[in-house]
Amino acid sequence: MRASHADRERAVDVLKAGFAEGRLPQQEYEQRIGRAYQAQTHAELQLLVADLPQGPVPQSQFAPRPAVPPAFMPMPMQPMPAPTNGSATGALVCGILTPVTWGLSSIPAVILGHKARAEIRRTGERGDGQAVAGLILGWLGISGWLLFFVLMVLVGVTNL
């Protein structure tokens, strides 16, 4: 039976795998590749790959298809990671902006951080680290303002 271009390509793939696994020396590999591209029949292709683990098999509608070697299988699909919680990102941004806004974004950072942590526990989204960082920065901003007011009151009381 005459070989198709696809049959020749399958034989070349088997030869490439054999060479990559160290089953064929360079010179013999190159000779077999050349002969594979010139082969006219399945028998010629079978002779080229008969001593290798996988060879081309004539494809008919009744013959079972050979298993594809693992080296030629597509990579398995990786599952998509869970999305990052938007409130967690907002908490982190508000926390980072606390010094720039003179502490005005501290309260939104704390509120968004607590809201984000509750949503993350409920939905399994990512971003817990962002929410915690926003909470810490928010509470630092609030405590900074409280310290400032306490100092102002103490200065005011001592000046009386």
Rank of each mutant, 00 (worst) to 15 (best):
V150Y: 00
W145M: 11
I96M: 09
M80V: 12
D7C: 00
Q26W: 09
A3N: 09
M152Q: 13
G103T: 09
F72V: 01
V157T: 05
S105H: 00
V155P: 08
L160E: 04
P83K: 05
L140C: 10
F72M: 10
A3I: 09
P74Q: 11
L92W: 14
Q40P: 04
Q31W: 11
L160F: 11
R126D: 03
I136Q: 02
P74E: 12
M77R: 15
D13K: 13
V12I: 15
A67R: 14
L154A: 14
R32N: 01
Q54I: 01
G156H: 12
R126T: 05
Q26C: 02
L154E: 10
P64C: 00
Y29G: 01
G113R: 06
E30D: 13
D7G: 03
V57F: 08
S87D: 13
V155M: 13
L92R: 11
L47R: 12
E9P: 04
G95C: 08
R126G: 00
E28Q: 12
M77N: 13
R117H: 02
A3G: 00
S87V: 00
G144K: 10
G95Q: 05
G34F: 03
R10S: 08
S60P: 09
L97C: 07
Q38A: 13
G18E: 10
S87T: 00
D128Q: 15
G103L: 11
S87L: 13
S87A: 13
M77E: 15
T98K: 03
W102P: 02
P81W: 06
V14N: 14
P69F: 06
V132W: 01
Q40R: 11
V57R: 12
L154P: 06
A63P: 03
V132N: 01
E9G: 03
P64N: 07
M1I: 07
A6Y: 00
M152Y: 00
Q40G: 02
P99E: 04
D51T: 10
W145G: 07
F72H: 12
A6M: 00
P74A: 12
W145D: 05
P79S: 14
M77Q: 15
A43M: 08
I136P: 02
L112H: 02
V132T: 09
P74K: 12
L135R: 01
P99G: 04
T41R: 07
G113A: 14
A71I: 08
